[in-house]
Nucleic acid binder design. Structure first.
Lengths: 165, 165
DNA sequence: TTTGATTTGACAACGTGTTGTCATTATGTT
DNA sequence: AACATAATGACAACACGTTGTCAAATCAAA
């Protein structure tokens, strides 16, 4: 047994993790409420954001990689958005199957309408918080995220490392 | 249009929120990997934790309220855990239907085994981070969570408040 | 060109959480 | 006691994400 007890940092990060779970749940709820009357959900909104922030049209798989989620989930939602005329597929000169995803004018209006709702919402939510503290929080969260990404990469790349030295 | 642009805090919190989403995803993944060989998942683990931390046996609905999620999801998972002999129901002297949930000896072993895996994992994950920064992060996350809970309560209690002054 | 590995989209099954409805049980009011 | 209200569990439908498999397309190597 290498470590039977948590270090001071380990204890603090454990508490932070539990709060992150709860905050995430609340954010999903609030996000769904915020854009539900636009016919959007948190998941759809996040995907529209990925499309909006990409410099050029990209494939579904590319967006999924960038977002750190699996292709299939993004594919399903983008297919739905396509049926509803919110996004559409452009033929890809470099790949016959991997079509490029772009927002339709209707999709762009929708995305801007969502932002118009998010701005006053987040302004009220964050009112009075110290920008320094927020930056510190973001830094900690980002570092934890990065470490987990690295650890995940290591585990994926060397699954044969089952023996111990 | 009350606020067309985000305040400084609004901008920072928006960035923080996006990172919280990504961190949450990574934590779910890491948590599932950590306890998968015990036959647990992140969701099951979290529910076992709620049971372990309650001072006395409580009903499913009570746990759901405490965790801030809906009864139905907790009910389904606890029913599964019951079938597998990980938790069991005690008759409730004060309520004929709302049985009390307790962990079986097998469930307690499972939960302790999960903690034994989490301790070295979180110690490595948090190594080198400043305890002060972690505390600041937790404080920010907790305040955002509390504000969202309050806002959610307000919206639930006064759904007739559709007009504006 | 041929072969094999990788990428991509399609499809299906499942775990998790949300939403809504229903019957049963407690609780509070009259 | 009788009634209305709330709480609780059961059930079903759906949204979202994960996991696995398959075929088509691309790319790299021989």
């Amino acid at each position: 047994m290498p470590d039977a007890r948590r270090t001071e940092e380990g204890e603090a990060v454990t508490a932070l993790i539990l709060d992150v779970f709860r905050l995430n749940g609340r954010l999903q709820l609030a996000g769904d409420r915020l854009v539900s009357e636009l016919g959007l959900t948190s998941a759809r909104w996040q995907i529209l954001g990925a499309i909006a922030y990409s410099d050029r049209p990209e494939s579904v798989a590319w967006h999924a990689r960038t977002m750190g989620v699996h292709r299939q989930g993004v594919q399903r939602i983008i297919n739905e958005l396509s049926k509803e005329g919110i996004v559409e597929f452009q033929s890809n000169p470099h790949h016959k199957r991997a079509h490029l995803v772009v927002m339709t004018p209707k999709g762009q209006e929708l995305y801007e309408a969502a932002i118009a709702k998010q701005v006053p919402w987040v302004n009220e939510l964050s009112e009075g918080l110290s920008p320094d503290d927020i930056a510190t929080a973001q830094n900690v969260v980002d570092r934890l995220k990065s470490r987990l990404e690295e650890a995940s990469m290591r585990q994926d790349q060397s699954p044969s490392q089952s023996g111990r030295s």
